[in-house]
Nucleic acid binder design. Sequence first.
RNA 1: GCCCUUAUAGCUCAGCUGGUAGAGCACCUGAUUUGUAAUCAGGGGGUCGGGGGUUCGAGUCCCUCUGGGGGCACCA
Length: 648
Amino acid sequence: MAQISLTFPDGNIRQYPAGTTAAEVALSIAPGLAKKAISASVNGAHVDLQWPITADAKIAIHTMADDAQALELIRHDCAHIMARAVQDIWPDVKVTIGPVRDYGWFYDFDRAEPFTPEDLGAIEARMKQIINARDPVKTEVWDRARAIAYYEDRGEPFKVELIARIPEGEDLRMYWHGPWQDLCRGPHLAHTGQVPADAFKLTHVAGAYWLGDATRPMLQRIYGLAFKNRDDLKAHLTMLEEAAKRDHRKLGREMELFHIQDEAPGMVFWHPNGWTIYRGLEDYMRRRLMRAGYKEIKTPQVVDRVLWEKSGHWEAYRENMFIVEVDEDGAREKRINALKPMNCPCHVQVYNQGLKSYRDLPLRLAEFGSCHRYESSGSMHGLMRVRGFTQDDAHIFCTEDQIEGECADFLGLLSSVYRDLGFDKFDIKLSTRPEVRVGSDEVWDKAETALAKAIEMAGYSYTINPGDGAFYGPKLDFKLTDAIGREWQCGTFQADFNLPVRLGAEYVGEDGAKHHPVMMHRAILGSFERFIGILIENYAGKLPFWLAARQVVVASIVSDADPYVHEIVDALRKAGLRAEADVRNEKINYKVREHSVGKVPVILAIGMKEVEERTVSLRRLGDNITTSVPMQTAVMTLTAESLPPDQR
RNA sequence: GCCCUUAUAGCUCAGCUGGUAGAGCACCUGAUUUGUAAUCAGGGGGUCGGGGGUUCGAGUCCCUCUGGGGGCACCA
């Protein structure tokens, strides 16, 4: 039998007969390792222990100590065990697919009746029985005809369709968890008992389209979570509870920031507190943009459909536009307008006023543009996805040669803004030319290279999404990471070779001829609504002092202190701080609690001692220590702290 | 838009198998002048998201519309 040589992580090389399994390799090293082994990596591919190794390779044996591999196997086996449990209980349910995802897995089933929460309990119980049975996991490679015949015979049409979608020449692997069988590319654990019986949980049921295609049947998806041990599961559940406490919809109500009501779904009613935050953020962005050489403009919200037809939006996005009809006296036809879904066509109109020279470029037009999009009912979510929103939008009209410089400047601005707002980490994704596109290959080459080069020069790394660019140009997407590790796509920088041509934007070049500029669409926050939602969740409502709606509450302890309380509030307000007096007839405990719950960063408590000494008792949110400071010192300190980051 | 689910006082929630609604907080009034996360007492407040139906009778069952939530699809 032919020999193969396997290279271990420590550099050791050993010879084995071809077809040796990873289990046999582990046993050849040490019986202890064989016992602990759960899977192996062969040339970087994660495979199960039964996998025959047929050629020279690098190999690593994994144990439960290898988190990434262990969790993948546990979650993947959970998916199979759950599917088996479901078919044990309801034999007529059809199975489809069940991948590992996030902190667990899901599995999609075809079943006439949806699963109920009680069903989940029954499934969990059955899963535990399967785990405790320690059923062996077996695998075999089947040929297509046999696999198709098998599934047709068993009445599993989704599996038959899956097989048809697997490329010819690729092995079809069958897995058995005890008597239950599933088509799967693996890898899996050696027996069901290796899945910790107390470290998984079925969380919820949801509908999901077969193959993610809205024209295909809707399946019943069950989501589950799985970890290596009970404590990890508990820690994750606790984390989820913590995340729920940060929910901006909940905090938005508690902190009296905004509300949304039935008569205007997806539209925000900003309350005084919320609007203060909004304005703070807008003022900050305006200063940053002005400093970076942008010119602010304001364009109409209601625009005749003619413009949207010219820009191409009418054809592509009419379904998602709010239409405004006007019945003008004597007019044969109603005039049809649309609420603008985006600002760019209007910005081109501003650009088009007056003849532009190459000397005018780059021209950076910014707008806090109020846009409306008729988002589908199921997609709306608090502030995160709304129908009426305001972008920190701008369009840079420039030449192809200026793309790189503009991109570099934009990167500098974006990273600085994110840092100021408390986000130190963000990822960049470069999406390159799709199959269907406008513009010559030379222009695409130039633009893609310019974007990549600008990122590299700035010292950032990026990933490429090949073919994911818009038809009109390549783009960068920026995803920031929040305090609890969630990612939010906010910033974007997109080249557009199309719209300037469609809407006739031109400039006179050095050569005296007319050219179309490139238009760079760009945003840093994305939408103010959504970004404020992200800020609230990132800070769990405890916004930085400069953004907090109510910065200071001055609370009296006895009513004899009221005049002094008002004097302090006046002094703070005169210094530009957002301060309020609380002279209600309540105990200081009550006031401290209420304003702490309301996330007020600073509470000044005032009793007779403070009145006599002309001091304040200062307490910061989250601390339960108080310090006694002279009133004037407190005003000065807090004033300094209240400066936005760009003004310090 | 699709699947599931949900909609009871300002908020959070209770209301068994159908017989015309309760609690805590909030609010108002009074007492209390209080030292850093909820002082005590009293009071007002909802016809149960809208519409339709079944029934002698519906918050409670059915249909439908609207909104919310969890996902899927969508996201210029």
